[in-house]
Amino acid sequence: MSHFDWGSGAIVKPEQPKKKKNVQIIPAQTDLKRRAVNFVKGFDINLSPEQLEELEQVVQRSSETFVRDIGKDLMECRKTVIAGLGDKSKRPEAITAAGDLAYSVKALGGTFQYPLMTQIAKSMENFVGERTTANEKQLLVIQLHIDSLYVILAGRVTGFGSTVEQATVAALTKLTERYEDPRE
């Protein structure tokens, strides 16, 4: 309620009550921290370089499985793409298989010291992404990606490769741009 302030001679209106926004802050759950963090058993929160190296070796244990399984997947996907070249009804299946493979290689290549494969797979994924089918030339572009990935894997080309490999990546990217349309 407003009132007259005899000191200043002014009518003073009360401050509007501040309306609370409907936000609930829920305290952090510390149960996990309480249970697991200690000073006796387990791994240091800040791992030493040696410990990190050991942990990285654990990750690399699956490297051979990656080479074997992805090699197999590349061959199967290549067959599916070739089947799609000859039979239009098989193209959606080829596109799905190529998309899955591209994502998988993109996700794991770099983890296993094959960042070049990740680069090519990324180009392939961008090209395949959101397509449901492809024409003949587009399937050939996909096939070229698969072949390149296979060559890198078979040659165990770790790292980003030489200028030749980088030129191949650039050429593949140009091909994807050229045959980008139509996107169905």
Binding site: L32, R35, A36, V37, N38, F39, V40, K41, G42, F43, D44, I45, N46
Partner: peptide
Amino acid sequence: MNAKIDFSKIS
């Protein structure tokens, strides 16, 4: 002394 994480306590 460094704080550690006992991962055996976590699922």
